[in-house]
Design a binder for these strands. Structure first.
Lengths: 144, 144
DNA sequence: CCAACTTCGTCAGAGTCTCTTACCATCTCG
DNA sequence: CGAGATGGTAAGAGACTCTGACGAAGTTGG
């Protein structure tokens, strides 16, 4: 409702636009067998691998849900699970070969969209936006 | 993965933080019988009412899904459906009394969070952020 | 060492959300 | 008026998420 949109919607709109473009591009490149929910978990896998519980916390879902999504990503070949050498209870979720290829593709699409945004805002203001968002992250992201 | 987060995640993090705070606050005020999906539809109801199809488009879901969510919002007393005087096929979804009260509460919470963000960024940079996001909306929001 | 507690993960079951397909009613236009 | 477009509903299936309960492994304090 309203004259001036609240900041939440203002943040959400470009996020969704970007997500949509990435999905579209990945599907066109043959990576069409995963869902938004799976992607949001996949996106948070750390370079050396992450535990399911970590992924759950960062994605804002329960560990059961995260486990469910990782199962599917594993079946589709995007990730693999290996024992965690540091903890016998845990297993590390790592990006598998196919997952790495999809990351490459999505990187390209994100760069493309960011270029469009930069063209619209101007390089200086685009940099400003990123700086502002990074600063905001300090008080809105519990994980650093 | 990575040193510098992509802009998408940078946008998503504060969005989610704000949404979480609003939910928390609404629940504390007794508005605890609705879900995030329902809220995302509710949020887009225009002042004079909206058609289900409009809500679906703007929320990025099918009209069937929107209808499903509106049903629940109606049952919980947040919205009401009235015939659209301009079109015999259509019905307008309007904010009902209880919905209006929840809007009041959420407005207060949003203002509170925005004040925190302003305190963190500074008034000038907060205004910049909103301006930048509003500009970005021009190329990321299909509905104006 | 061992008992209590915590943490990582799984299983089972239910509720929520979303989609596709199909259909009816109404409106618009030629 | 008839054809096509549009607003909405119905039915069914699949995806996502949660709560509760549990086993296995790690941690801590006596």
């Amino acid at each position: 409702m309203t004259e001036s949109l609240n900041t939440g919607l203002l943040l959400f709109l470009p996020y969704r636009a970007l997500e949509f473009r990435v999905f579209e591009g990945l599907a066109a490149a043959g990576f069409d067998d995963f869902t938004p929910a799976q992607a949001r978990v996949f996106q948070r896998i750390a370079p050396g691998g992450s535990r399911t519980t970590e992924l759950a916390e960062q994605a804002g879902i329960t560990k059961q849900s995260a486990s469910f999504l990782v199962d599917q990503l594993e079946r589709a070949g995007y990730v693999e699970r290996v024992p965690d050498p540091a903890d016998g209870r845990a297993r590390l979720v790592r990006v598998a070969e196919r997952g790495a290829r999809s990351v490459e593709v999505s990187r390209g699409i994100v760069a493309e969209v960011e270029a469009e945004w930069t063209a619209h805002l101007g390089a200086r203001r685009m940099a400003q936006l990123r700086t502002l968002l990074a600063d905001l992250r300090e008080i809105t992201d519990p994980w650093r």
